[in-house]
Nucleic acid binder design. Structure first.
Ligand SMILES: [Zn+2]
Ligand SMILES: [Zn+2]
Ligand SMILES: [Zn+2]
Ligand SMILES: [Zn+2]
Lengths: 134, 134
DNA sequence: TTAAACTCTATAGTCACTATAGAGTCAATC
DNA sequence: GATTGACTCTATAGTGACTATAGAGTTTAA
């Protein structure tokens, strides 16, 4: 199949498929006479794997690690488990950060409930003076 | 004061101060004989405002809007309030996304509690086959 | 006097793409 | 056979908010 069909089947954009190839996340497919990329079932599976990982916000560098691990099917999978655990930790950190941020923003927003002139807007005044709790 | 001192006082890096100047978020300061940037109290206040906004993850484009609004002290501040409201909405969206992501990742992680060989790792198998709930 | 610490400009790199330009190819319709 | 539209190719630039580096000049303290 050509790249457009692969894109439709996987939900990746055509450009990002070419990008993954350049970054060596997927192997370069064979080409047609006129240089079109031609993909087979195996290529499709590769890309689906990558797409699933990206849906989970796993970085391309991490995906490369996972693909490397898959190359050694007889080794222990502890590195896989570790990678996912670390990823979950990262997300927890980001969530904690966002919660704080939301608190600060809600606090800031409360400084101007009624419409004021810009000069008297409590939000702008706070932004000038307060170090915004963090 | 020179750029290094301004950086220390505001918590911005020297490079990002120069970057803000290039992006016209702060006005170009006067220069010393040998072309060093020299900042005064007003420059410091400008940058503190920007730093506070950045601490709240307000984008540079939004900061520009706020700075423009500050130029018209007699107008109503509804645009300020609206901007902050929208920003809070954005953060809520991101938090919802992250919660889903964490759910999917936790689910994925549970597919391999005990160490397996890579070949039998439930995580890798799931990544191949499952569309990762979203 | 010499070394460390600072400043300057300009440029490239980060991440995971998206968008564009300019050219070639293919399928279907008139 | 001609034309249209949809597709493909490569190469390059842009996104956001910086960080890092190179190579040069300046200030300050020991
Ligand atoms: Zn990760
Ligand atoms: Zn207000
Ligand atoms: Zn915003
Ligand atoms: Zn496992």
């Amino acid at each position: 199949m050509k790249i457009g069909e692969l894109a439709k089947l996987t939900g990746c954009s055509v450009q990002s498929i070419r990008f993954y190839e350049k970054e060596e996340l997927i192997s370069a497919p064979r080409r047609s006479e006129c240089n079109y990329r031609l993909y087979d079932q195996k290529n499709l599976e590769q890309l689906i794997f990558i797409k699933h990982c990206r849906n989970l916000d796993i970085t391309l560098a991490e995906i490369k690690q996972l693909l490397n691990l898959k190359q050694s099917p007889e080794t222990q999978c502890e590195d896989v488990n570790y990678l996912i655990d670390e990823h979950i930790k990262q997300i927890n950190l980001r969530m904690t950060g966002l919660k704080k941020l939301k608190g600060s923003l809600t606090d800031l927003r409360s400084k101007c409930r009624d419409n004021q002139t810009v000069k008297n807007c409590g939000i702008l005044q706070d932004l000038l003076t307060k170090p915004t709790g963090q």
